[in-house]
Nucleic acid binder design. Structure first.
Length: 195
DNA sequence: TGATTGATGAGCT
DNA sequence: GCTCATCAATCAG
């Protein structure tokens, strides 16, 4: 089965739509000649200047400027001693993004296990900090265009999930606007960060 | 299942 | 200094 790289048009959609439609897609990390692949099973939407929990709520700064740029780019940031990765969405000037919270490891599992220093496949990518460790994602990968086929990070298309396979619930690990139902994950998937 | 705590880095004021 | 979109370990029920 031939899979296509998701195009700019996909990321220019409404952030909540992108967050839901990213579920089931293939997240690809190119490291030299090797490739690590995981299926996206959990995401969260961050709605920019109207969303208190978003990094862009306070307005543009040096740290979050990529959020204000073009859609379809990575936004990598450190939180405590881990990294998290977002994909920017919507038009330039709208600082919205989708946080990738969990993957289902597909390819390169041995490499991920050595990077994470564990043999437990269940524990490789079941959280935003964990998956960045498993895929060797750091600040060097900030502001990368994920629609260019020679990028270190790419996202490939896959069949769209039906509405009943997507669970909608509240976001995790934030202190503001925590009541909003902006977290999405694949029903019955065992690789999500928590139920 | 939930609450708590400590390690820890980057960015902001 | 302070905040924080984390994780792992621990303890209580």
């Amino acid at each position: 089965m031939i899979r296509e790289i998701l195009t700019k048009d996909f990321y220019y959609q409404d952030t909540i739509t992108v967050a839901q439609q990213l579920l089931g897609k293939y997240f690809v990390r190119n490291i030299g000649s090797s490739q690590l692949i995981g299926k996206i099973v959990e995401t969260e939407a961050y709605l920019g200047i109207t969303d208190e929990a978003s990094h862009s709520f306070i307005g543009p700064t040096n740290r979050n400027k990529v959020l204000f740029g073009e859609a379809g780019h990575t936004y990598v940031h450190a939180i405590h001693r881990y990294y998290c990765i977002d994909i920017t969405t919507e038009a330039s000037g709208k600082p919205t993004s989708v946080l990738i919270r969990a993957l289902e490891p597909i390819k390169g599992i041995e490499v991920m296990e050595s990077l994470r220093q564990t043999n437990n496949t269940m524990n490789l990518t079941s959280g935003p900090g964990k998956l960045c460790q498993a895929l060797q994602i750091n600040k060097d990968l900030n502001a990368i265009d994920v629609t260019q086929k020679n990028s270190a990070i790419l996202i490939f298309d896959n069949q769209l999930l039906s509405d009943e396979d997507i669970i909608k619930t509240t976001r995790i690990g934030i202190s503001k606007a925590k009541e909003l139902p902006l977290r999405f994950y694949i029903k019955d998937n065992i690789f999500i960060s928590r139920t």
